[in-house]
Each structure stands twice: as C-alpha cells, then as structure tokens.
Design a protein around this nucleic acid. Structure first.
Lengths: 348, 348
DNA sequence: GATGCTTGCTAATGCGCTTGAGTGTCAAGA
DNA sequence: TCTTGACACTCAAGCGCATTAGCAAGCATC
C-alpha cells in the first residue's frame, strides 16, 4: 500500500457557502467587504473561510475581471554584466517587500534585448498574466513606454528621466545630475583637473544623462580635459578602457566608473601599469556594493539605497493599479562615500 | 481631444470563431491540435489566431483545469548574503532559459525564512498560482518537501543530497563530496597539513555534506589538524573567523571558504595580520565568480556552471509537470580552477 | 434499405468568482 | 392599512477556455 498522494482539494467559495449556510454571493460579499450581508453573517463566513484556509483563486478572479494580482518585471541585460552587481537583487528585494504586503506576485523574466522584452510584454498582455509592469534600464528612443501604453498595461519606469515632451508612464528616478555634480565637486576640491568617466552602454538613458551632466559640470568650471567613454559594463571593457586612457597622452588623474565591477577591474589595470590607487590615480565607483568594501583599497563610491528604490517603484505601481495618476517621483540623490580610493591629485 | 488610451481589447476564441466562421469548440480543437476538425479548417483557424495575435488566457485555461503555466521560486536568504554572490542570478538565468522555451512564467518571491517560505507555498497553492516549484537551499530536517508533497505541488530541490530513506521530490545536485576531495587532494599535494574550512550556515544540507566529506577525507589521509567552522556566509563573519583561526595556536596554512565574499574578506583579514596570500597562507573559494578574477591575487576557486544547474533543475521540473517520475540527477562536479591564491605550504 | 461507423462540426456544461437583477421581510411613514 | 424603502440575502449570467455529448452527412457493410 503506497502512500499515494492525497489530492488535497483546494477549498472554494462553494464549500464556504455550504458550511456557513448561505449562498455563494453572500460569501463573496462577506469576504470582499461589500454591503449586502449582516455583520453577523460576515463574521461567520470569514471564520469558515479561515478554517478552510481558503484563498481566492487568482484564475477565477482574473476571469471575472478583477486583475491577476501579479506584476511583471523583465530584465534585458546579458547575465554576465549582472554578475557581481548587486543592484538588481537589492532592487527586486525592495519590490518584493512592497508587493508581498498586498499579496501580489512578481512574474520575472530575462530577455535578450529590448525587442525581446517587448515580445514578453505582448505575450503577458495577451495571456492576461500581469496587471502592470516595472520597466528597467530606460533607453533613448525607448519603444517600451509606447507599447505598454498601447496595450493599456500600467507601468513604472525605473531610473528613467522625466520626459517633459510626452508625459508617458510613471517614473521613479534618482538625480544623477546632482550625484555627478557632487563627485566632480569632490574631485576638483582634491585638485583633479583631468577626469575620465568610464560610462555604461551609450543607449541607456541614465548613461546619457550622466555624460551630459559631466560635460555641463566641466564646462561650468572651465575644465577642458574631462570626458566620458562608453562601455558595455563588463570588467573586460572597464579594464581595457582604463589601460587605454591611462597609457595615453595626458592621462587623467581621476576616473569615475559607472559600476563597481569596472571599477575593480580598472584598479587592477592601473596596477599593471605601475600606477597606485589613490596615490597616482583616484577612482570612484558609481555603484556601491559589498565589493567596494571588500577590495583593497576600499573604493570610494556613490551609495544609494537600491532596495528603497525598488520599494518606491513598487509603491508607485500599486498607486497606478489603484487607479491613481501617473507620476514622476524622485528617490534620494546617491551620496558619495569616501573610502580609500580617492586622494589629492599629484601636483604636476 | 486627449489621446485617450484605447482599451486594446484582448482577442478571445470567440473572435477567432466568428472570423473563421466556425464554433468556439472547433477553434479549441484546432488550436490545441486535437482531432475533430479537418486540416483545412485547422489551418484557417490557426491563421486567424495568428492574425489576431491571440494567446490563450492563462486564467481561463487554469480555470478549466489546465494548469497555470507558471512555476514558483522562493528565495529565503537575507538579501545581504546575496549581495556579491552571483550564483542565484546565474541560476535564475538558466531556469528562465528553459522555461521560456515553453512559455512558462516564473513567479519569484523572497522570504524571511523557511517558515515564511512554507507560507508562500501554501498561498500559491490555495490561490492556484503555480503548477510546481523549485526549492533552493535544502536543509537538514527540511519541512518543505513534506509540505509540497501534501499539497500535491510538483517540486525539484536544487542542491539537495539524495535521501535514500524517503525518496521524496526530484532533486538536482552537485557532488560536493567529489569536489571537496579534489580540493583536499590539491592542498595536500602542495604540502598543506593544517586546513580550516570556513563553511556556510550549519543548517544548510550542503554545508553539512561538505563538512562531513572534509572530515572523511582528512581521516582517510591521517590528517588531524583539519576542521570546519560554520558562518552565516557574510563577509563580516568570514573575516572574523579568519582572524581567529590565523591568530590562534597552530594556525592553518590553507583555508577553504564556502563562498566568494568570505574568501575576499578573509584575504583582507589575513593581510591585516601581516600574512600574505599565497606565500603565507593559501585560500580557495568554493564559489567562482567575477569577483574571484577581479581581486588581487586572483582566487583559486571551484567553478561550476550555475546557469546549467538552473537549466537542469528547470528541465527536471518540466519532466515532472509532464507526468514523469521524480528523479535524482547530478550536475557535473565543480572543477578547481587554480589561480594565484594557492601555493606550496611554507616548510615548517 | 436499414445498420453501423467515421468524419467534421455544434451545443451545452463547468471551472471559481463577481455582479446586476431580483425576492422576501420588516419597520417606518402616509 | 397600504405603501415605501432599506436590508439581507438568493439567482443567474458571464468571464475564456476545455470537454463531453450530440448531430448531421457520407460511406461501407450486410
């Protein structure tokens, strides 16, 4: 006699109705807090539901037009550029925290590129899988907001810049401009005049924003030897670009990297060239993570609360799902944490 | 005249039926490849469905007993221990890859602890949200397999040891024993006799397995000064334990860490004590990641294909959902990649 | 020429839930 | 006393799909 799996039937409203001696509609009213039942009945129904461990079937709910209590999140970055970077895990962790309070599910998917990602949205919409989505890594000429609007899928763009021209979906963003300004302030105060910004992929909106801001900051201070170089975020390119700029004529005395992995790779590349950090060259990572504290020297980095970023985005999406208006909200400006990778520029 | 969002109605089988001039049932037969319609009709219906961009509503499908085409994955680890560790992202990436082929969704959730995780499973089951789940970080006395069996939720345990006593759910696992043996082999060949294993949390099944294997290996070789110390996987504990064992009497000449973060922290801690890696002490990380290649010295590490691990687990779950039997499959043994953190033991 | 069988389709039912349209009861107002 | 109307509840329809039963036509069998 094998211990055959007992099917463990899912309780339904019908079961509750039978036990409580009322109709299914009454159960529905009682459980959803709408008028139409006495408080006594409501309490009784609630008790029975509790006893039975009843939970509404999302499928049935969705079918009767209530939404599927799920939001989607697509990540369209090659896995290798995510390797060490803790940003997304922290972000998702924050998103979860807010969604879980309302018992909303998070449907997660990785995609090859933005085109692929759009396909996922279309499918999710057609299959009625999500009530809304969180969009990461906004780009210049991004097709996603338009598509999502067309599909009528509520969306919150994470890290997007507010776009004055067409309002579009909700947006949560950090003020990269302010952060970049603080970094330049600090480096200039330390005497640095030649700065290279080793940026992320050029099609990312925030990469462009940072590059533009850096240029503006430099111009505002009359610095002529300040520039940005774009990369694919990988340690390999981070190292390669570092070798190139430090080995060239008029090498910079300070480097600003758009993520932690490239920063660490850059420090190693500098070491290969016989340059010490921070004595010969200062470096700043735009992304703070455990990595920045673990390596030697510890890296000065722009720190932000990625989990809080996620929480804010999730809350904004909830507001949208509750029928609220699209908004643009700002999370706190990343703060520069000075550790051991920045120092006064060598005179001369 | 505002550009009001056009509702963008989702096409249904009824729409297809109308356009193709057949009944809804015929559409269902045609699209699901079952007999009952002529090939001509089937082709026509398929064409119309394609034109309309139709996709089956998962809600409706689920309601008529077809499963929700979604699998769940819960992560019950504090976010800070996930920070740098790329294992989970790679794992999820691999899982995705396999699920996407079949258009299955991945419902992802983070939990506080295993108890919490069980609550998530219960809710998912009651809400009919998933067809099966992937279970990570198996533990000693793990309540999850039992619960999932009781609920009748197909499950694949990732990283579990095969349990001879009660067969339980499907399992994919790496042969930690073999890997540990190869590490000990190598360290002993380099002349190391005093080895400390800085392990993960003691309640994790694979931690226990590694500890047990190390003991067995040591006994088999007559090594008496080999031991394991458990931690919470954090860089802080990794550093603290490193300081303690290296500062004590009869300090080890080789350290094996259960993850990359602790290894890096340990190297830094050793440096503080004036010990150089690998001249004074050799270190090996059980987890290979970009981090291991980025730091100086580059870390010797056990490398495994985490994405492939995920793919295997996902494939096993698919097999289960297709009605296949529970199985125990093994992924390749992690290979020791020797970099610059291991060297011959100092004589004396 | 009635019977059975296959083919290609339609009609009807149900999954679990929400909801608009009733239904019966009781108390207050005309 | 009869009408209103609020209240507490039941009925039935419908969401999109799968599925079972049914049905008409065509064909072969005896």
């Amino acid at each position: 006699m094998s211990t055959k799996r007992s099917p463990a039937r899912r309780p339904t409203m019908k079961d509750i109705a039978r036990r409580a001696g009322v109709s299914e509609s009454a159960v529905s009213f009682a459980l959803n807090g709408r008028p139409g039942v006495s408080e006594a009945t409501r309490a009784r129904v609630r008790r029975v539901a509790e006893q039975l461990g009843w939970r509404p079937s999302t499928a049935a709910r969705a079918l009767s037009g209530e939404g599927v209590a799920t939001v989607g999140f697509v990540l369209a970055r090659p896995a290798h550029t995510l390797g060490v970077d803790s940003f997304f895990l922290q972000l998702v962790s924050g998103i979860q925290e807010v969604l879980a309070e309302r018992h909303l599910g998070l449907l997660f998917q990785m995609a090859e590129d933005v085109g692929d990602e759009c396909g996922v949205y279309r499918r999710w919409w057609a299959e009625h899988r999500v009530d809304g989505v969180l969009v990461a890594d906004p780009r210049a000429e991004d097709p996603r907001p338009g598509l999502l609007d067309e599909l009528g899928l509520p969306a919150v763009v994470i890290g997007g810049a507010p776009d004055e021209r067409h309002p579009g979906p909700s947006t949560v963003w950090a003020d990269d401009a302010g952060a970049m300004a603080s970094v330049v302030d600090e480096l200039v105060a330390l005497g640095h005049r030649r700065i290279v910004h080793i940026a992320g992929p050029p099609d990312l909106a925030h990469t462009r924003r940072r590059i533009a801001t850096l240029r503006a900051e430099a111009e505002g201070r009359g610095l002529t030897e300040v520039r940005s170089v774009t990369t694919d975020y990988s340690d390999a390119e981070g190292a390669a670009v570092t070798r190139r700029v430090l080995g060239g004529a008029h090498p910079p005395t300070a480097l600003v990297y758009d993520n932690d992995v490239m920063t660490v790779a850059g420090v190693a590349a500098a070491a290969e060239l016989g340059l010490r950090v921070p004595q010969d060259v200062s470096v700043v990572s735009w992304e703070d993570s455990a990595l920045c504290r673990l390596v030697t020297p510890q890296l000065s980095a722009l720190s932000r609360d990625s989990a809080e970023f996620g929480r804010t985005a999730a809350r904004e999406l909830l507001a949208l799902l509750d029928g609220g208006p699209a908004r643009t909200v700002r999370v706190p400006v990343p703060r520069l944490i000075e550790r051991d990778s920045t120092a006064a520029a060598r005179s001369g």
